[in-house]
Design a protein around this nucleic acid. Sequence first.
DNA 1: TCTGGGGTCCTAGGACCC
DNA 2: TCTGGGGTCCTAGGACCC
Length: 434
Amino acid sequence: MLRALADCNNFYASCERVLDPSLRDVPIVVLSNNDGCVIARSAEAKALGIAMGAPYFEVRRTCEAHGVRIFSSNFAVYGEFSERVMAALTEQARDIEVYSVDEAFLGFPDMPAAEARALGLRIKEAVLRATGIPVSLGMGATKVLCKLANERAKSDRASGGVLVVPYDDAGREEFLRGVDSEDVWGVGPGLAARLRAHRIVSALDLAQADPAFVRRVAGVVGERLALELRGISCHDIVEDAGPRQSVMVSRSFGRPVSDAAELAEAVAAHAARGAEKLREDGLVAATVVVMLRTNRHRLDQEQYFADEAEPLDPPTDDARAICAAAGRAFARIRRDGYLYKKAGVLLQGLSSAAVVQPGLPGLGAPIDPQRDRLMKAVDALNHRLGRDAVRLASTGFERKWKGKSDLQSTPSLTDPERLPKAKDGPKPRIRFHE
DNA sequence: TCTGGGGTCCTAGGACCC
DNA sequence: TCTGGGGTCCTAGGACCC
């Protein structure tokens, strides 16, 4: 089966450019939470040598010297663009797996390889017309090959943004020749070192190695990669990923925090936000894990990393129960004398809220209908009035630990008209949370 | 001075059971 | 001297990804 990976080019930077077309040809950088790190760059910014993940304070001078436009990230807006891109792609393929905010795998049963390139070009054009976002397409027999092809489509201008890996052995091997095994999707530093130790250096080496041998040195993960590189699919296109396994809410502080009350507030705020995410997805959690971190970059300071779990019995999505449990875990691991940099809350053991039925033995205590109505009312109010309009007092009001994100292009965007409309597509729903 | 946030899958080892 | 064996479930930690 012909498969494809459609991946947006410089996604967050491209979103900012659609919001403000005058930014065409201007170098753009988008920063992470707290304006900490570079998480997206336009082609012009990449050309200036600004690295992905670079701390902003390290590249600030370069940015200023070259007139780079800097943006704080605005994930609510990028999420809207993502939905539009995925909607446009859905019209183009029978099977689609939304893999991340800016990429999707597509499946085309019965499509001859000879027609792949023309198809890819049509898709690219359709997405650009519908959303303003440029995408690249990598196409081939397997996901791993599509991933490699996509990277090459982006770097090779002659490709026109669409590249197909040949189906015949000779053509595929030619494509893999000279590709470092470390550049294969799923091969990180650890796996690459193990492969190198057995003289598997290039993607072609990996494709040609005996799968049983690869399995011994690199496990089932490595074996699947080797097979995929040979054009044998091990990773299907999964249209329905199923319910999520965990919910994570964590933030670095805007400045070091040592005050216990301030820390407790941050933990409570993250726990409450986690509970909100559970309710959005109709899930309940059986465990909450609280994490505290000092600044790992400050080698001159005492370090402390701690995780502590607390059961939620019965499993719940109630912000009060989850905050209380998180508070207990927090009290057990909090230590005086450290400058904390980050706090987080992880919710695990997720199951459908509907399964926890009142009165069924073995499934915990019956749901309290009052409690359920209260949470629904809070969610409805916050949806209408903005996030945290109604909140638990324990989550704090000043939130002094919050960092800065002053450089958002649309800091208080509430007017859907400000988002350019897709020419052909349905009018997108606009939801701005922050 | 200033270094993100949120996920998934696999494996090894222990608990427990028959 | 001289350990049973095999199965399942759960969890912690590693590795990798966007």
